[in-house]
Each structure stands twice: as C-alpha cells, then as structure tokens.
Design a protein around this nucleic acid. Structure first.
Length: 803
DNA sequence: ATAGGGTTAG
C-alpha cells in the first residue's frame, strides 16, 4: 500500500511526522520484511537529520517516534545511540514503553538497567512496571516497584500502584491474602481514592481463584465515590471470569449511564460462557436502543452467531456492519472481518468466506489462520496447502492447523513431513501441534517415531497437557504399546473422558478385554459420565474378548442409566458382536427394535455374522437389502458379489460385478508387510491391475534398499504375492477390521483374537494384524500397515523417519 | 512519557 501523497505545502516536520506514523501503523498490522522496514526507517532518519529536526526542542515528538520505530526494527544498536545523544528521562520512558509494545521485553529491561540511577524518575519506573505487567511477569514488576519505594528521592504515584496491581494479577497462585495485603498497602499509602487504582483493585480481586474475594471486589466498587465505565466493565468481566454470568448480568443492569464498553463486556461474557442466544439478544436490545455498535460489539456477536450456528442472524449482523462500514478505519474493521470469515466458513460457505478474505484491505495473522482453518474444515486440503505456502507470515497456530488438518484429512505422512519442516525452520511446536504429529504416528503405526515425540514432549514441559497426553494414549493404543499407554494414563494429571476412552480402547483392542471393562466401571465410579464414544469403545472391547452378554448389558445400560440413545454405530457393533457369537437370530430381533430403518452398516454387520456361521440364506437376504443402498458404502460391491456367490446366486453376483465395472470401481492398491524373525513378507493388496500398482513395486524396492542401507534388517527379502490367488482380478483390501471379517478372510471363532493378540505388536490398523493371525499364532511378530503409499513417490522417500 | 477493561484463528 503506497502512502497517500502529502500536500506539497506541508512543512517538513509535519511531513516527517505523518510518514513516521504511517510506517508505525503499517508495521504493527502487516509486519514488513525486516530489510525493507529498516531501509524505510533509515531513509526517514536521514531526512530528519538533514532537516535538523532530531533533538530539536520544538519537535520533541519526532525523536520519540523515531526511537519507537527503531524498537520495531531488527536494529538493536541505533536506539541506544540515539538515546545517548538525548538522555532525557522522557526519551528513556518512551523507549522502554516502545520496546514493551514491540514485545521486546528483554531489551526494555536491559535498557532500563543501563539508565544511571540519578536519571531514573518515577515515570520511567512506571513504564517499566507496566511493561512487566503486560508481559504477565509479576515478580520483576514488584521488584521495580520496591526499588521505587526504597528510593530516597522518588515516591510511587497512582500509575505505579495501578501498574503494580495489574502485574500482581498475573501471579500464578494468587491467594486472597495477597489481595487483601496489597489493598491495605494501597490504603495506607493514600492511593485508595484514585479511580484507576480502584479499578485495578477490582480486577485483582476478580483474578484470584478464591471464591470469597468476589465480595471484596464488590465492596471496592460500592465504596467508590466516582465510578467510570471501566469500573463497571471490570466487575462484569470479573463475574464472567468467576463463572457467574447472572451476577455479571445484574451488575450490568445496575449501570445507569449506558457505556458502550459495558455492553461489549456483557455480550462477550455471554459468548465466553457459551450463552450465544443471550449474547445475540443483548445485541438486539442494544440496536433497538440506538446505541451504536463498535468493532468489539460486531466481533463478539458475530462469533456468537458462528459458535451457535445462527447463520441467518449472522448474515443480518453482516448487513448492519456493511451499512456502518464507512465509519470504521481498516484497523478497526480487521477483527470484524476476521469474525465474518469464521462465520461463513463455519456455515459451510467457504467461497463467501474467501471472497470476504480477498476483499480485506488489511490482513493480519489471524485473518490468514482463519481462512486456512476454514479451508481445512471444509475439506479443501489442496487449497489450504497452497494458502499455507503463500502466507506472508505464519504463527505457530498456522503450523498447528495445517499439521492436524493433514492428519484429519488422512494424510498422516504429509503431517509428519510438515512437522519436521517446522522444526527445521526453528518454529517451536505447542502441545496441540505435538498432538497432531503424534496422531499421525498412530495412523502410520510409527511407534518408534511416536516415542521420540513423547520424549520431546517431556523435554518441552508439555507432559501435563491433556491434548498431548490424549494423543499419546491413542497412538500407543493404535500401535499396540499397551504398557506405554498405561504409563501415560497414570502420569497424566487431569484425565478427561477422552483419556478414559483411549485407555479403554487400548486395552480392549489388545487382548485385555476384562481389564477394559473394569476400567470402564472405574471411570463411572469416579463420576465421569461415559459418552457415546465410550460405549462404542466398550462394545468393541467386548467384541474382541468375546464377552457377548456383558456387551449386551452395557448396550442396555447406555440408554437406561446414562440417557444416551444408541446410534446406528452402536447397533451395528452390537449386531456384529451377536453375529460373531453365532446368535444371528437375536441380532435380527435387535434390528426390529431399532427406532430407525436399518442402514448399510447394520446389514454389513448381519452379513458378517452370516459369513462366519455359514448362513447363506439370511446372508443373501441382507445382501439384497444392501444392494438397494449401494453405492453408499465403501466395500459393499465386493462384499455383495461374494455373498451372492456363496449363496449360489451367480446371476446376482455377475450383476454386481458388472455394476462395479460400469462404475469404474477399483480398489486403490496398497501394501502390508509382516516381519517374522529377520524376514519380511510383503503383500500387495488391492487391484493388481490398477494403473498405480507398479508404483507399489517401486516403492517396495525403495523401502527395501533403504532398510538394508540402515542395517535395519540384515537379510531383507521381499516376497510379493497376491493375497487371494484364486481371485485373479481383485484381491482383498479391507479398510477396517469389520470388513476384513465380513469378507470372510477370517473365519475365526469368537474370542480367538485374545490369545493371539497377546503375542502381537500391532502397528496401524487392526485388520492387518487380523489378516495375518492365522499365520502367526504363538509367534512374536510385528505387523505394519502402510496406507496411501503414493505419498512416498520418487526420491522423497523420507519414510526412514517413520519407523 | 507511564495506568485499569472489552475482540478474532484451534
């Protein structure tokens, strides 16, 4: 954005002043590249020097502004040099606060220390105190305040107290006694009647976790002779923070003068408490009272609409904003536009969101991150990836969104690749990003890599993070490392329902069915309500362990004791469980009690039961039902044709095959390998005539070469073979354990999995392990499953990282 | 020249 032309007749000081202000404003919203910024700054600096405007008593603000800009630049030396030529306390104060605004607290502190004691005045101390307060550093702020107290010539003033109180509010274990002590000290030193000090005192009391201090805060407010809008705002915000929205509302109703900020505080309080309808209602009242909404109002109410799914309301707010938009400078419109982008992405209108994003004259990191996650939430991973590359600046959050976007989009390899790139660019991942990378390891069955990440997490101090802990639990569970999962579960300081579910799943999937059930009961005993996922998990555990009656009890207790209506997936699992136990009749009875029409998943479960028990007649009936529903479900085609063949209904089987050919249904090829001793057997699964099949072979050779090079397996031999030689055209590729069973690959009696799984370390999907079970009973084997091999194309095979 | 509160991305 080129700066607007200046009036030719404008004086040089005025011109410079405008230029300086423009440079600062632009930099704070769109950080330019360090080089170009510094160049522009030096040009201005030279101009000030030639005009003899620097250190000129008639234009003191020019020097200060220049100092301010230098604190934004990567040039650390110049501000100090400039200061040496004008060592006034005013310049020092300006420099300290500029450093603080620029987020360069260490520079502010070391500069403050370098100012000789006689040159420090109260205002300079105050600036330093508030700099620490802004950075949430209570202790150093207190020590600056103390040096002010101990000084012979200086005395703390109102600003000092205000800053001190705000700094102490950031203390971690702020006790009620701290607050009352400080309150006493403030009164003793005669600052009790100052408006800003009282406001800060209210905020301090409200930041303390002890419930009883709320009264003290209220007392301060009540005793104030004069209150301003901030007093009311602070108390409203405080009540919200304490989780007492009703108290916030009644304080809000007490205000006689209708300050805009109090409305904003109340609206955003509702949003933070998840009461979006109330937030919107309040906004409506505000509009009807003709109180003009500002950018904060719009931002809050739009986010309320986005959170609650009030898309029509949101649209009307958008309309009102458009009418008032000329009143907003770009800086003010920015957060509103960001909230609009969020609203439209959440309502599934990503193209509208993108249009708003493109039309924004001013964008910040939040804007880029918002549109990025909008693309990811609407499944446009390609667009997201392109955007990610184009982003002029990224925050840690951008990386996090992209990494977890890849994982949820099923591109675990890309997630890990990006995670590695992130670290090579020296961006420090937060716990959520680690969680994404760990989830990717779980998807890939990359246990070793996952363990490395676990070590990183401990080193970075994220051990107490719930998201990281839950990701670790899930990953260890998927990789069959039950011991590690147990350890994580024990160490986690706050386990939530996700953690319990993940731990139960880990036990249930790996042959500890009984223990899984015990853990479920323990969870209930500890007062954590199981959710629908918990019941899916426990039914799966029962399935693995062959505990049919127990499974049925949990299924019953789900609606009876916990008021959770079983969904399609719960029914499907229960039917699968009954079917595998040979109780197919009971499964059919259960279907009749369902409150909805049977879905493809239900019929697939019946079908799988029929295959295990050799009930071709009922199987064909289920196949007829499924036939009506294809192609809603993946895998249905092959399943159907096999079932019809088994029932001797060759004509129907041929019809299904023809349908498959007509629709061009092909199974994506993939490969699995099994490692027994030092020998690896690799199986190609999927359509061997698929155009990409030769890529699989190439990939396997590459992996083999790489593994030999790493000395991982001394004598690696690849045996490529069809999984099902009697089926020339299509070989089996199951996407899930359930399908593997329904394909008839595993005619296992119920419960057989337990004994086998004890000796099995499983990486990746369970189905692969199950496929090989009959081969590997009683032996220590490692099974890994590689999906979506084509992301390892050509020379980029970085998979060495993944095992 | 310094202070107190309110906003958006997961």
């Amino acid at each position: 954005m080129p700066p607007p032309p200046l009036h030719a007749a404008a004086s040089l000081p005025y011109q410079c002043s405008v230029l300086l202000r423009q440079l600062a404003a632009r930099h704070s919203h769109v950080p330019a590249s360090p080089c170009s910024f510094l160049r522009a700054l030096r040009r201005l600096h030279a101009r000030l020097l030639t005009g003899a405007l620097l250190h000129n008593p008639s234009h003191p603000h020019l020097t200060l502004r220049l100092l301010h800009l230098y604190t934004l630049s990567p040039d650390l030396a110049t501000p100090a040099i400039l200061f040496r030529s004008d060592p006034s306390p005013i310049a020092a104060t300006s420099l300290v606060s500029a450093y603080a605004v620029a987020g360069r607290l260490p520079d502010a502190a070391s500069f403050f220390d370098s100012v000789p004691l006689p040159r420090r005045d109260t205002v300079l101390h105050n600036a330093m105190i508030s700099a620490f307060a802004r950075a949430s550093l209570a202790a150093p702020a207190v020590s600056v305040f103390r040096s002010l107290l101990c000084s012979d010539s200086l005395r703390p003033d109102d600003y000092s107290f205000t800053g001190l109180l705000s700094a102490v509010g950031h203390m971690h274990n702020l006790a009620a006694s701290h607050c009352t002590q400080l309150h006493g000290a403030v009164l003793k030193l005669g600052a009790g009647a100052v408006l800003s000090v009282s406001n800060a005192l209210i905020a301090l009391y409200m930041k303390c976790d002890a419930p009883e201090v709320t009264r003290d805060a209220r007392k301060v407010l009540d005793e104030m002779p004069v209150k301003d809008e901030l007093s009311w705002t602070t108390i409203v915000v405080g009540y919200v923070r304490k989780g007492d929205v009703h108290a916030a509302r009644s304080a809000f109703e007490e205000v006689d003068a209708e300050f805009d900020v109090v409305w904003n505080a109340m609206i955003s309080g509702y949003v933070q408490s998840g009461m979006c309808a109330e937030a919107f209602e309040l906004f409506r009242r505000m509009v009807s009272k003709r109180i003009p909404p500002d950018e904060f109002t719009f931002t809050s109410v739009l986010s309320a609409c986005a959170n609650a799914g009030f898309f029509l309301h949101g649209k009307s707010v958008h309309g009102q904003f458009i009418r008032l938009q000329p009143d907003f400078v770009p800086e003010a419109a920015l957060p509103v536009n960001n909230a609009l982008v969020t609203l439209y992405s959440k309502s599934g209108k990503i193209s509208v969101a993108a249009r708003i994003f493109d039309s924004m004259t001013l964008k910040d990191v939040v804007s880029w991150n918002t549109i990025l996650s909008g693309y990811i939430e609407s499944g446009c991973l390609d667009n997201a990836a392109r955007l990610f590359k184009e982003m002029p600046y990224k925050s840690e959050l951008s990386w996090m969104v992209m990494v977890s976007g890849y994982v949820h989009g099923g591109l675990a390899e890309d997630a890990l690749k990006l995670f590695n790139q992130m670290r090579s660019e020296d961006v420090k991942p937060c716990d959520y990003t680690y969680a994404g990378a760990i989830a990717a390891c779980g998807e890939l069955g990359a246990l070793r890599h996952g363990k490395q990440l676990h070590a990183h997490i401990v080193r970075c101090g994220f051990e107490a993070s719930n998201s990281a802990g839950n990701a670790l639990l899930t990953m260890y569970g998927k990789c069959g490392a039950v011991k590690d999962a147990r350890l994580v579960f024990l160490v986690m300081p706050n386990v939530d329902s996700v953690s319990w579910n993940a731990m139960i799943a880990a036990l249930g999937q790996h042959g500890h069915g009984r223990e899984a059930l015990d853990l479920f009961d323990q969870m209930v005993a500890e007062g954590i309500d199981p959710d629908r996922i918990s019941f899916l998990t426990i039914l799966a555990a029962c399935n693995h362990a062959g505990l049919v009656d127990e499974g049925f009890q949990y299924f019953e207790s789900m609606k009876r004791d916990f008021g959770i209506r079983p969904g399609e997936d719960h029914y499907a699992r229960m039917i699968d469980l009954l079917g595998r136990a040979g109780r197919i009749g009971e499964a059919m009875d259960l279907i009749k009690t369902m409150p909805f029409e049977p879905t493809p998943a239900i019929w697939e479960a019946i079908l799988s039961g029929c295959r295990i028990n050799g009930d071709t007649e009922l199987g064909a009936y289920a196949a007829d039902q499924l036939f009506e529903m294809i192609p809603q479900h993946d895998g249905t085609y092959i399943l159907l044709s096999n079932t019809y063949s088994a029932a001797g209904r060759w004509v129907d089987a041929a019809r299904v095959r023809k349908l498959m050919r007509d629709r061009g249904v092909k199974k994506e090829p993939g490969c699995s390998w099994i490692e027994v001793g030092n020998k690896i057997h690799v199986f190609l699964v999927g359509d061997t005539k698929h155009p990409e099949a030769h890529e699989v072979y190439r990939f396997l050779e590459m992996v083999g070469a790489k593994m030999r090079k790493l000395g991982y397996i001394p004598d690696t031999k690849f045996v490529l073979q069809d999984m099902a030689p009697h089926q020339k055209e299509y070989v089996l590729f199951a996407h899930s354990e359930k399908l593997a069973v329904s394909f008839g690959l595993l005619k296992l009696p119920l419960g057989a999995t337990v004994t086998v799984l004890k000796n099995l370390r499983i990486c990746g999907d369970c189905h692969t392990a199950m496929m090989f079970m009959s081969l590997a009973v009683g032996r220590e084997i490692v099974v890994r499953d590689v999906k979506r091999f084509h992301h390892f194309k050509d020379g980029e095979c970085s998979c060495g990282n993944y095992w």
